[in-house]
C-alpha cells in the first residue's frame, strides 16, 4: 500500500507530533509513504481571495502525484477537502478542467484526473480496517474515555469525498477509537473548531471551540481526539487563550488519533511526539499504565 503523503503547510511547521505519530502508525500497518518535495500549499487558504490560484495550486499537487503514478494520502482535513473538491471538479466539470489545465500549462504541468485523494483516517478505516488494527495493538486503552472530533472537512463536501461516512452522523473515528479498547464519548459529533475565523475574529473561534471543550468535559472525557492540525491548533495550542478569554477552565488533553493508536501499539510517548502536545497528557499515560500494570 503505497501513497504520496501530503503534509500541507501546518503539519511540518506546527504539528510534528501528528506527523511523527502518523509515520510510525502507518509504517507499522504496512502503509508506505513517499515524500514529494515538489508539493506546495493545497490552495485552501487562498480560495477566499483568489479562487483560480487556489484551483491551480490544488491541481498542481494532484498532477505531481499523477506523474509519479501515486494516489494521495492526506493528513490535514482542510487539505483533503480542497484536493478532493478540485479532483472531483476535474472529473465532472469540463469547463473548470480546461481553465485549470490551461493555467498548469504555463509551468509545464497537467492533470488528467486519475489520482484518488483520501485522508489517512479514512484509509485506516476503509482499507486497513478495525480488525487488522486490533491485531497490531499491545495495550488495551479500556480505561480511557475519548471524545472524537470529526471537524468539518474530513467529511465535507460530501459529494467530493464520496459517501464513506455519514456527514451528519459520522462513526468512523469513534470506531477507530473503540478499536483501541477506549470508549468513544460520541454525543456531540457535529462541531466546527472555528479555525478558519481565528485570524479575523478570535471571539467567534473561541466561543465555538469552547462549546466542544465544554461538551467533552461535561461528559467525562479524559481527552479529545482530533485528525486535523488546525483543529489541534485551536483546541490544544489555543486552549489556554480560550480559557482566559471566557474565564473558564477545561484542562483537557487533545491527542491526534494516530497518537492514541500509537500508544495502544506500544510506542514510547516520545516517539509519538506526545511531549509536544500543549495540554499535558501525563494523566492519560498514568491511566493507561496503571491499567496495564493491573492486568499484568
Amino acid at each position: 500500500m503505497k501513497y504520496a503523503v501530503f503534509l500541507g503547510c501546518t503539519i511540518p511547521a506546527r504539528a510534528r507530533n501528528y506527523e511523527m505519530s502518523a509515520m510510525r502508525v502507518a509504517e507499522r500497518l504496512g502503509i508506505e509513504f513517499t515524500h514529494i518535495n515538489d508539493f506546495a500549499c493545497c490552495g485552501f487558504p487562498v480560495r477566499s481571495t483568489k479562487q483560480a490560484f487556489a484551483d491551480a495550486l490544488a491541481a498542481r499537487n494532484l498532477g505531481i502525484a499523477e506523474s509519479q503514478g501515486l494516489d494521495i494520502c492526506v493528513l490535514c482535513s482542510a487539505c483533503s477537502a480542497v484536493l478532493a473538491e478540485v479532483n472531483h471538479a476535474m472529473k465532472t466539470d469540463p469547463a473548470r478542467n480546461s481553465v485549470i489545465n490551461h493555467h498548469l500549462e504555463a509551468i509545464g504541468r497537467s492533470y488528467h484526473g486519475t489520482v484518488s485523494v483520501r485522508h489517512l483516517t479514512r484509509i485506516l478505516f476503509e482499507d486497513i480496517g478495525i480488525e487488522t488494527i486490533r491485531k497490531h495493538l499491545k495495550f488495551d486503552l479500556t480505561a480511557l474515555f475519548v471524545a472524537p472530533h470529526y471537524g468539518c472537512h474530513y467529511l465535507k463536501p460530501s459529494d467530493a469525498h464520496g459517501a464513506f461516512d455519514d456527514p451528519e452522523h459520522p462513526s468512523s473515528i469513534g470506531e477507530l477509537i473503540r478499536a483501541t479498547g477506549a470508549s468513544a464519548v460520541d454525543l456531540d459529533r457535529k462541531h466546527c473548531c472555528g479555525g478558519a475565523v481565528l485570524a479575523v475574529n478570535n471571539d467567534i473561534t473561541y466561543r465555538l471551540a469552547a462549546q466542544k471543550l465544554e461538551s467533552a468535559t461535561h461528559h467525562g472525557s479524559d481527552c479529545m481526539c482530533v485528525i486535523c492540525p488546525f483543529c489541534s491548533v485551536i483546541y490544544d495550542d489555543n486552549q489556554k487563550p480560550i480559557e482566559q478569554h471566557l474565564s473558564r477552565e477545561f484542562d483537557l488533553p487533545v491527542l491526534y488519533l494516530t497518537q492514541l493508536i500509537g500508544l495502544a501499539m506500544g510506542f514510547d510517548p516520545k516517539e509519538l511526539g506526545l511531549n509536544m502536545n500543549k495540554v499535558k497528557a501525563a494523566r492519560i499515560l498514568e491511566k493507561i499504565e496503571s491499567r496495564s500494570h493491573h492486568e499484568s
Binding site: 511523527m20 518535495n37 506546495a40 483560480a52 490560484f53 491551480a56 498548469l104 504555463a106 509551468i107
Partner: peptide, 22 residues
Amino acid sequence: KVGLPEILCSNEEVRRLFEVTS
C-alpha cells in the same frame, strides 16, 4: 532529530501560477 524527512521548498512554479491566474 525526530526522524522526519527534510523538506525543501521550491517556489518558482507557485510564483508563476500566481502570475498566470491573477
